[in-house]
Each structure stands twice: as C-alpha cells, then as structure tokens.
Design a protein around this nucleic acid. Sequence first.
DNA 1: ATGATATGATACCAATAGGTTTCGCGTCAA
DNA 2: TTGACGCGAAACCTATTGGTATCATATCAT
Lengths: 114, 114
Amino acid sequence: MSQAAAKHDVYQAIADPTRRKLLGLLSDKEMPVKEISGHFPMTRTAVSKHLRILGEAGLVQERKVGRETRYRLDAEPLKELKDWLAYFDRFWENKLSMLKHYVEEEEVRSYKEE
Amino acid sequence: MSQAAAKHDVYQAIADPTRRKLLGLLSDKEMPVKEISGHFPMTRTAVSKHLRILGEAGLVQERKVGRETRYRLDAEPLKELKDWLAYFDRFWENKLSMLKHYVEEEEVRSYKEE
DNA sequence: ATGATATGATACCAATAGGTTTCGCGTCAA
DNA sequence: TTGACGCGAAACCTATTGGTATCATATCAT
C-alpha cells in the first residue's frame, strides 16, 4: 500500500540493457543524475526515465541533496527474480536427469500415440 | 554462428508474464501448440508468437511430430540470468554490509562536499 | 480423394517503449 | 538578485510489442 501504481515490475525493469548497466553502476555508489548520465550515450532525460522505471520496480531509491537527486541501488526486488529462477534449477543443475525425464516421457508417448 | 539473428535475448524473453508461464508449463512436459494455447486466454497465433520469441532466446526447443510441433523447455540460457544476478548477491545476502557500505560512503561525502 | 486438423506466415492494429527537444522550477554561487 | 545549474514534466516522434483475423500448407482420417 505504501507505493501505488507499480506500473513496471522487476522483470520488465531488467529487460533493457541500459537499465541493467544502471544497476551495475549504482551498486558501487550513490550518484546524482548528471554523473550517471555521463556514462550513457543518450540525453539526461532519457536516463532519468530509465531511473524512474527502475524506481517503480523498487530497484533504486532516490534522495534529494540540494539541487541534486541521488540514486542508489536497492537490490531487494531482485529476490523475486532469484526465486523464480530457482524453480528451474533442476533443469540444468544436472542435465542428465532432465534428459532422462524426457526420454521416459517419450517412451510412454510413443507407446500410446504413435 | 550456428544460430543467426538472435533478435531476442533471455532478458526480454522473460519480461512478459505469458512467456514466463509458458516456461513453467513446458518444464513439466513437451507439448504441441494446440494443447499449450488451451492454457491461455488468447489466440493460438499469439501463443505461437510467444513461443517463437522464447525459441529465439533459446529457452524452448521444437520438434515436429506429424502435423504437430511440440515444444519443450531448454533452461540453459537462464544461466546467463543467474550469473548476472549473482553479482548482486552481496547487496542482500546480508543487508548489514550493504548498509555499512553506504554509511561509509556518506561520511566521506559529507566531509568533502556538504 | 476429400475433408478436418495443426501449424506458421502474413497483414493489420492499438498501445507501449525508448528516445528527443523544450520548458519550468528549485537551488546554488557571484 | 541575477544567472547558471540540476532536475523532472510535457509534448512529440518512431519502432516495437502484443494482440487479432485470415490464409496457405502439410498431415491425418475416412
């Protein structure tokens, strides 16, 4: 309830390479927009928009200092991604069991349908 | 070189909730398009497009069986995601060290600038 | 051979995404 | 107090996305 209008989720947020780079950049230290945008071949406004999307996903937090707005990483929402990803662990943690899975599937299916 | 025109990467592929659901569905078993599309409130063509995008990202593999095309999960490309994610582990594996990080940053900055 | 089935290809559409330029406003420095 | 600075908001543009309906083709069943 604390933050309405979560228009962008973490999956969308990291879909864009610029935004992934932003997260890497802001993991080192807090940074004002001007300094941030110096690292990207686009206008400050464009970077600012990316930052807003990251903010909506909860991946960055902002703080006003004088006329600056400083952004820093908040990695917490990445947990959701990590959890989602964990489900697929068994499918490549050992590829053998996955293969076995499909081979057995196939034997059953061949017998029934083909 | 084996696969040209990788128009979609794994980050984009999983950005869409329908496609994430598809991956979950296809992790259980190989499935033909018609059966797959039965699980979604959209046309078969739409589902087919999502499958193509997943295919471009290497996340599903297809196999022709008679007039069917059966799809199955290939989780391997998710490794890239997992690796990318691993970089951020330190930022929430123990939140204390992260906090410490910023506090120290801030002390230095206050001293220099404010 | 004929008709139903499974699918991909194609053309089309509205909404969103990613970018730009311009503008206004608060803050800092002279 | 007057600029310059840092930033977000707004209007705008084009390409992409997610969806549709329609069509062509290959395969299966009769």
